[in-house]
Measured scan of single mutants.
Amino acid sequence: TEKEKEVKRLAKERGLSPDQVRELAQRAGFSPDQAKQIADEFA
């Protein structure tokens, strides 16, 4: 999704850790499970 792409782009730009990616995703409105899946891509 657009929102997911945006979260991943920000995460890459900022060099976020997987935990930070998960927090960012949840703040963007993703469920905890979705946020974990997104964060796992950065693990």
Rank of each mutant, 00 (worst) to 15 (best):
A43Q: 10
G15L: 05
R22T: 07
P18N: 06
A28E: 08
R22L: 13
E41L: 07
S31W: 03
V7P: 00
G29Q: 01
T1N: 13
I38A: 02
R14D: 05
F42A: 04
E2H: 09
E41S: 12
A43F: 15
K8F: 07
L10N: 04
G29D: 00
E13F: 07
T1M: 13
E13R: 09
D33I: 12
A39T: 03
S31N: 08
R22S: 06
E13D: 06
P32E: 12
G15H: 10
A43V: 12
P18C: 10
D33P: 06
L24W: 05
A11D: 00
R14M: 15
T1G: 13
E4H: 08
L24T: 01
R27F: 07
S17L: 09
R9M: 05
S31Y: 03
Q37P: 00
P18D: 05
P32M: 08
E6L: 15
F42P: 01
Q37L: 11
G29M: 01
D33Q: 14
Q37N: 09
S17V: 05
D40N: 10
E6I: 11
F42D: 02
R9E: 05
A25D: 00
E23R: 12
K36N: 12
K5N: 13
D33A: 15
A35P: 02
E6G: 05
Q34I: 10
F42R: 03
T1V: 13
E23W: 10
G15V: 04
G29I: 00
P18L: 11
A39Y: 03
L16D: 03
K5F: 10
K5Q: 14
D33Y: 07
Q20D: 08
E13S: 08
T1L: 14
A28W: 15
S31P: 09
D40E: 14
R14C: 14
L16C: 06
R14Y: 15
L24D: 00
K36E: 10
K8R: 13
Q26N: 04
R9H: 05
E2N: 11
D40I: 13
P32V: 11
K3R: 14
R27W: 10
Q34R: 15
A35F: 02
K12M: 08
K36T: 10
Q34A: 12
E6Q: 11
V21S: 01
A43P: 03
E4N: 05
A43T: 09
E6F: 14
R22F: 15
A35C: 05
F42G: 02
Q37T: 11
A39Q: 03
A43S: 10
E4M: 15
G29A: 01
Q34P: 02
R14Q: 15
E13I: 14
Q34C: 07
F30E: 00
E13M: 12
Q34E: 13
R9F: 04
E41W: 09
K12H: 12
L16S: 03
P32F: 12
A11F: 04
A39I: 03
K36D: 11
A11E: 01
L16Q: 02
P18V: 12
A28R: 12
V21M: 04
E6H: 10
A39C: 04
K3M: 13
D40Y: 13
I38M: 06
G15M: 08
F30Y: 05
R14V: 05
E23A: 12
F30C: 02
D19H: 10
K12Y: 12
E2V: 10
E6C: 15
P32H: 09
F30L: 06
D33S: 14
G29C: 01
K8C: 12
A28N: 08
D19L: 09
G15F: 05
G29V: 00
G29S: 02
E6R: 11
E23Q: 13
A39V: 04
R22Y: 15
A25T: 01
E23I: 14
Q20P: 00
E2M: 13
I38H: 02
D19R: 11
R27D: 06
K5M: 12
R14H: 13
Q26L: 15
D40M: 13
R9P: 00
A11G: 15
Q26W: 05
S31G: 08
D40S: 10
S31C: 05
K12F: 11
R22K: 10
Q37W: 08
S31A: 07
L24N: 01
A39L: 03
F30I: 04
D40C: 13
G29L: 01
V21K: 00
A25L: 11
R9S: 05
K36R: 14
A39D: 01
D40Q: 11
E13L: 15
L10W: 07
P18G: 09
E23V: 12
A39G: 04
P18K: 11
A43K: 09
S17A: 08
P32K: 10
F30G: 00
F42Q: 03
Q26A: 11
A35E: 02
G29Y: 01
S31Q: 05
R22C: 07
Q37G: 06
A43R: 12
Q26G: 05
E4L: 15
Q26R: 14
A39W: 03
E4A: 15
K3C: 11
R9V: 04
L10T: 07
K3P: 07
F30M: 04
K36M: 12
A28I: 13
Q37Y: 06
P32D: 10
T1E: 13
I38P: 01
V21A: 05
T1S: 14
E13W: 06
K3V: 10
D33L: 12
S17I: 04
R9T: 04
P32L: 12
A25I: 03
E6P: 01
I38F: 04
I38Q: 02
V7N: 03
R22I: 15
A28S: 11
Q34V: 11
K8M: 10
R27T: 07
V21Q: 00
S17Y: 05
A28Y: 15
L10S: 04
A25N: 00
Q34D: 07
R27H: 08
D19M: 12
E4Y: 15
T1H: 14
R22G: 04
F42T: 04
A11P: 00
Q20S: 04
L10R: 06
I38D: 01
K8W: 08
Q26Y: 07
S17H: 08
R14L: 15
Q26V: 15
T1P: 13
Q20C: 12
